[in-house]
Structures are given as C-alpha cells and as structure tokens.
Amino acid sequence: MTGATGYVGSAVVRELRVRGHEPVPSCQRLSEPFELRDVDAVIHLAAAARVRESFHDPLSYWETNVGGTLNLLKGLQGQRFLLASTGTVYRPSEAPLTEESAREPSSPYSASKAAAEDVVAWTARSGRIGATTLRLFNVAGGGDKDTTRVITRAVACAAGTAPGMEVYGDGTAVRDFVHVRDVAAAFVVALEACEVGTSSVYNVGCTPASVRDVLDSVASVTGRAVDVSWKPAVPGEARSLRADASRLRALGWEPRSSALDEIVTDQWLALAPAPGPGPSR
C-alpha cells in the first residue's frame, strides 16, 4: 500500500484492519520499479496532488503520478490494484457526474491522474491484474491538516490557527464533500469486489455544498464567523462538480459521516481549539 501514512492512507489502514485485512505499507520510492511479493492486492494512494502547483511543475506531476503508477504495475501479475484518482478528471456539469461522464482534465494534476487511470485500465484488460479506480471528490474531516482545502481552511480560521481565507467568486460554486472515514470504507468495499481481469471505476462523493454553505456550517458548529476576503472569480472555474455515487452504493457502500455539519464538527473537534465560544444550537 502506497501513501499509507498520509491523510487518506491512515484512515484506509485503520479500516482495512477493522475488516480483517493485513495492510503492508510500502516504504519504497515511486521513482523505482517495485518488487511486489506475497501480496494479493495493491492500494495506490501516494501522489503529487496540488492543483495550482501542478501548473508550475507539470513534468514532476506526470513523473510521480503516471511514472509511479507504471513502476507499481510492472511488479504485478495476478493481483488486484486500486488507484486513488480524482473527481477533477471530469468535464464540469450542472448535473451529477456518473462514471460514464466525459473526462476533461483542467490541470496537469488531473491530466496525470486521467493518464494513470488509462494505464491501469489497459493493464487490467490484458488480464495481468484486476483494477479499480476510485475518483475521490472533496475529502474532508478527521483532523485534516491541508489548509488548501476549503473545509479545513474554514475550520482552521474559526479555531484561530489560520489568519483568514480567500474566496474567489461569490461563493456559490458547488463541490461534493465526503468524510475521510467514508472514503476509507469505500476502498475496502471496492477491494473486496475487485477481481483479476476486470476493471471498474467508482465515484466517491456524498454531500454537495457551496462555499457559502461551508462558511454557514462552520459558523453554526463553532459559534465563530470565518474572516473571508472576497476575490474575483477565477476564469474558467467549474461552477459545479457533484458526484453520482450510486454505482459504489450498489456494492454496499453507505457513507455514515458525510453530512456537512458532521464533517465540520469532526474537523473542529480534531483541532482541539483553545477554549472559547462553543457550538451554537
């Protein structure tokens, strides 16, 4: 398992153990070919994953996200392979996105993930592996420390650990959020359904919400307003990215912690802010 000590990876490791699996974290560099012995599946979570950074250094994103995936696949024969991808591979749409929706990556990051998806799918089609790609939308909660993510940033601002946040546009752009624990459960459900010689794709998302919805939720849960600097909208920014996760739900996945207020509350409690105004009810 790559990325086992990361934000999502740590949650996946815990969920695998609860479900009776034995995760084996990889300490090997993605830039080197892997020797994978005595494992029946690989969960590939490690990646370069900052959208804005990818515009400045696209080659390293392709080297890590595509090259690293290739190095893993070269060491496989007869195992199952799960790839963490992203909902940003899709062409934006006002309608919920299904797994058959058109892909149209809008950054080097999402383009590298789309390319990795293709390599994995073609390898499965050859009969060499079984493959599952999970397209994660906006993962949140669980003590996330990445303040480039909107819920994490807003809660950090309320807690006083970040000075404020910038919002581009009018705050009505909608994204799909899902708790990291529910993401971990999705990986286990998908792993148990994966078979050698097959290739599947699943959306992992749950709760559509706008930036303004997030700000309102943070204020309601914490009793503290978020200091926001409003900026002009970014040209070409998607107005809506919502996931249709019915295919994953059909496997038995049922998100349990992904209501917006639940995610915000969980993140707030994980930060253990200094004493002050508590949640308003």
Score class of each variant (00 low, 15 high):
4 A>W: 11
4 A>Q: 10
7 Y>S: 01
8 V>D: 01
9 G>C: 05
10 S>T: 15
15 E>V: 05
17 R>G: 10
17 R>M: 14
17 R>P: 03
20 G>P: 00
21 H>D: 11
21 H>Y: 09
22 E>D: 14
24 V>T: 13
25 P>T: 12
27 C>D: 14
29 R>L: 10
29 R>S: 14
30 L>E: 01
31 S>H: 02
33 P>V: 05
37 R>A: 14
39 V>R: 12
41 A>E: 10
44 H>E: 02
47 A>S: 12
48 A>R: 11
51 V>H: 00
53 E>R: 13
53 E>P: 03
53 E>L: 09
53 E>Q: 15
54 S>N: 09
55 F>Q: 06
56 H>W: 09
57 D>W: 02
60 S>M: 08
61 Y>D: 00
63 E>Q: 06
64 T>H: 05
66 V>A: 01
66 V>Y: 00
68 G>A: 00
68 G>S: 01
70 L>I: 04
72 L>W: 00
74 K>L: 07
74 K>M: 00
79 Q>M: 05
79 Q>P: 02
80 R>K: 15
89 V>K: 00
93 S>Y: 00
95 A>M: 00
98 T>S: 14
99 E>P: 07
100 E>L: 10
101 S>R: 00
103 R>G: 08
107 S>N: 08
107 S>Q: 07
117 E>P: 13
122 W>E: 15
123 T>H: 13
125 R>M: 12
127 G>L: 09
131 A>K: 12
132 T>I: 09
132 T>H: 08
136 L>V: 13
139 V>G: 14
140 A>G: 14
147 T>S: 15
151 I>K: 14
154 A>P: 05
158 A>S: 04
159 A>C: 09
165 M>V: 15
168 Y>T: 11
170 D>G: 13
172 T>M: 09
172 T>D: 10
173 A>K: 06
181 R>P: 01
182 D>C: 05
184 A>C: 08
191 L>S: 08
194 C>G: 03
194 C>S: 13
195 E>H: 14
197 G>V: 03
198 T>I: 04
199 S>L: 03
205 G>E: 09
207 T>Q: 13
209 A>G: 06
209 A>E: 02
209 A>Y: 07
215 L>G: 10
218 V>K: 05
219 A>P: 12
222 T>D: 11
223 G>E: 10
223 G>K: 10
224 R>F: 11
228 V>Q: 04
228 V>S: 07
228 V>L: 04
229 S>D: 15
230 W>T: 13
231 K>C: 14
239 R>W: 08
242 R>Q: 11
244 D>F: 00
245 A>M: 03
246 S>D: 09
247 R>G: 04
248 L>W: 10
249 R>E: 15
250 A>R: 12
251 L>S: 06
252 G>Q: 08
253 W>P: 02
254 E>I: 05
256 R>W: 02
261 D>H: 11
262 E>N: 06
263 I>R: 04
264 V>I: 08
265 T>W: 03
266 D>Q: 06
266 D>T: 07
267 Q>E: 15
269 L>R: 14
271 L>N: 06
272 A>I: 06
273 P>D: 02
273 P>M: 04
273 P>V: 02
281 R>P: 00
